[in-house]
C-alpha cells in the first residue's frame, strides 16, 4: 500500500506516543520515518521492533568521551536515538560517536537525516557490517548491504564531496507493507479516547441540522 509522507509521519508519531514514548521523542521518530519515506524507504519493520524494545523505559547511559570519540554502549534507537544525536551534534565537529550496537540501524539513519536536514550538517554513518550512509538536507547516499539489528556504528561529520552520487528525496508516497501499517495503526489507536455520549454531544455540528 502507498501512504503520503505526511500520513507516514503522523501515523508513526502517534504510534510512538501509543507505545509510551514522550511526545518530543515521538515527534522526531515520526520525522525520521517521513524523511526515509521521501526516498521510498519503508522503515516500519524496524520501527515497530524498536517500539517493542522501548516498552521498558530506561535512561541512556552517560557516554564516555575520550580523544574526540564519544562512546556509547548498546542503544535502543526509539528511546535514545534522538539523545545519541544530541550528544554527537553538540560535540565539536571533529568528534566522532562510536556506538557498540543499535537495534534499529535504518531508523537511526532517518533520525540523522532529519537532524542533518534541519541543522545544515552532513553526517556519515559507518556500520560494522560495512554498510555506509551519508545524510544531508534532502539527500541520502548509501553503499553496501543494509545493516540489521545489533550492528555497531560510527558517526562522523561528512564532507559535501560525499554526496556526489547521492539520492535526492523525491518520492511523494512511500510503499508500506500492509501488516506494518496495521501495526502502526494499532499502536496509534492507543492514543484515541473511546466515544462517549458526552463527547459526541459537544462536537462540531452537534444539534444543528439544516
Amino acid at each position: 500500500m502507498r501512504r503520503s509522507i505526511n500520513e507516514t509521519e503522523a501515523a508513526t508519531r502517534k504510534a510512538a506516543v501509543g507505545a509510551g514514548l514522550p511526545f518530543g521523542t515521538a515527534a522526531e521518530l515520526g520525522k525520521a520515518c517521513a524523511w526515509l519515506a521521501g526516498f521510498n524507504v519503508d522503515v516500519l519493520t524496524e520501527f515497530l521492533h524498536a517500539l517493542d524494545a522501548a516498552a521498558t523505559p530506561d535512561h541512556l547511559t552517560a557516554p564516555e568521551a575520550q580523544e574526540g570519540v564519544i562512546a556509547f554502549g548498546h542503544v535502543n534507537v526509539a528511546q535514545h536515538g534522538c539523545n545519541l544525536l544530541d550528544y554527537f551534534l553538540s560535540a565539536p565537529p571533529t568528534a566522532a560517536a562510536q556506538v557498540a550496537g543499535v537495534d534499529s540501524p535504518n531508523l537511526l539513519i532517518g533520525l540523522a537525516g532529519h537532524r542533518a536536514g534541519v541543522g545544515g550538517a552532513a553526517i556519515a554513518l559507518a556500520f560494522s557490517n560495512g554498510f555506509t550512509a551519508q545524510v544531508a538536507k534532502g539527500t541520502l547516499r548509501t553503499n553496501g548491504k543494509r545493516p540489521t539489528a545489533g550492528v555497531g556504528v560510527r558517526l562522523t561529520r561528512a564532507n559535501r564531496g560525499d554526496f556526489d552520487a547521492a539520492s535526492v528525496a523525491s518520492s511523494e508516497t512511500c510503499t508500506i507493507s500492509a501488516p506494518n501499517w496495521t501495526g502502526v495503526q494499532r499502536l496509534a489507536a492507543r492514543t484515541y479516547v473511546p466515544e462517549s455520549e458526552e463527547s459526541r454531544r459537544k462536537g462540531a455540528g452537534a444539534g444543528e441540522n439544516s
Binding site: Y192, V193, P194, E198, S199, R200, K202, G203
Partner: peptide, 26 residues
C-alpha cells in the same frame, strides 16, 4: 484536549468529569 476514536475528531473534555484525561493531547 484529546482525539476521539470516532473519525479522529479533536475534542475537549472536563478533566474531573469525562474519561480520557490519561490520553491527553500535548
Amino acid at each position: 484536549w484529546y482525539v476521539s476514536e470516532t473519525k479522529l475528531e479533536p475534542r475537549l473534555g472536563l478533566r474531573t468529569q469525562e474519561p480520557g484525561a490519561e490520553l491527553e493531547s500535548p
